[in-house]
Design a protein around this nucleic acid. Structure first.
Lengths: 228, 228
DNA sequence: ATGTTGCATACTGCCGACAGTTGTCAGGTT
DNA sequence: AACCTGACAACTGTCGGCAGTATGCAACAT
């Protein structure tokens, strides 16, 4: 098969690596990232590194003029705001998916959820796989909505920040099953072509995820304690 | 008053100029922007120009690897999607504003709307001033919401694209008055601290703006005709 | 006439280097 | 001992230049 050759610039490569490093916890929140140092470590010039870091500004890193960039930090407020943003965007995505999703979409999504269901039943370790499936589900809805703006923001901003947040807060027992039920509700509303119900179901889902995640974060924050 | 000195890099300066040039129609949609040419015209190196264009990627310009950037084009679909994005984000912003806005906010917003009302009554030319006031109103709500994520996206993505769209479609007679009434409804809902009503009012407002704008665009498209 | 090949031009992606600025720390001062 | 001072190191912002690639055009083959 003659697949088209993917053109990957160095800046793109650096972008992927930095995103992976931050979302995997290799770079800690608040850590300062030096253009020069990264360039030396990667064996390339500062130009592509600079480009990649600029593309992540406001998403995964913060910039201070003449001082450089540092990995964003998450406090209670900014995490709450991230969930509000998700509720708005993914709610609208679910609404548009109910209107625009292709006919076979609901069946495929349901198959995905069945696999997810089996995963939860089989293995007690619900850590990574479940999160990956969960991401796939939400990404699938964003694609089905057919709105490139929303899809881009969810992919390049929300998901990245969400992965950082997930590094810190573990899931509460029972939350996976609850989320799965809500996912089924969303798919059914989209299958029924009911935009109001689809948006409402998605917003309930995100809202309960917000409450659960913030509670988990607060519990861990109390356990870990803060310096000072 | 000791205002903080704004540190402006060349890249920032270029960013502002390019945004102004695109949103004022100096660069037409689809026009190719050459890094080298812009750098020569501005009398600087290609570095800052490159940076600025990268920051506008996906917002005001499109990039094709090894080919460069060109000003984004708006068809019916992408404009509709822009309004869906607005409806989601600004609806949530209105909801959060109803919850978080400081006490004096509603009075200030109402004063802004009164000035807007006077403008509409006094002058028949509702072109620029009205649009500026309209922008101020929506920006004010985004700020009052206290959600930096939503505020940033509205400011750096939605508003820019909206200005391009406004270059092409003129307002229908009576639309300004309708929009003003809807603005008052939104402010009243926020003053009453009623998040459901605030979000619903804002979404009705954006939805009617969407219908009006798309109708105006289609009418002009039929008049102008398309090549081919 | 149509399609292919080769070349000239302009541009993007990338690099190494320089100026100005910021943070740090030794050394001296009060 | 605490504070100020000045130099050193590292980094960001910017620049000019080089290699590889895409566009347009002319010459050639079919």
């Amino acid at each position: 098969m003659m697949e088209p050759i993917r053109i990957r610039s160095l800046a793109n490569e650096v972008l992927d690596r930095v995103v992976a490093a931050i979302t995997s916890g290799e770079f800690e929140p608040g850590e300062k990232l030096s253009e020069s140092q990264l360039a030396r470590q990667l064996g390339i010039s500062r130009g592509p590194v600079r480009e990649a870091l600029h593309q992540l500004e406001g998403k995964l890193v913060e910039r201070v003029p003449r001082l450089g960039v540092s990995v964003i930090q998450f406090d209670h407020d900014s995490l709450q705001q991230l969930f509000y943003l998700r509720e708005a965007l993914e709610g609208m995505a679910a609404r548009l998916a109910a209107l625009n999703a292709p006919d076979g979409w609901a069946d495929e999504a349901e198959a995905l959820l069945r696999r997810h269901e089996a995963d939860i039943r089989d293995t007690g370790s619900r850590a990574y796989r479940q999160r990956s499936v969960d991401e796939d589900f939400h990404v699938s809805i964003a694609r089905a909505a057919g709105c490139v703006n929303i899809e881009r923001i969810l992919l390049n901003e929300v998901n990245f920040q969400l992965r950082i947040a997930r590094l810190k807060s573990s899931m509460r027992p029972g939350r996976a099953e609850e989320a799965l039920r809500q996912h089924f509700e969303i798919v059914e509303a989209i299958r029924a072509r009911d935009p109001d119900r689809a948006e409402a179901a998605m917003r309930r889902h995100i809202a309960s995820a917000r409450i659960s995640t913030l509670a988990a974060l607060d519990g861990q924050a109390g356990k870990g304690g803060e310096p000072g």
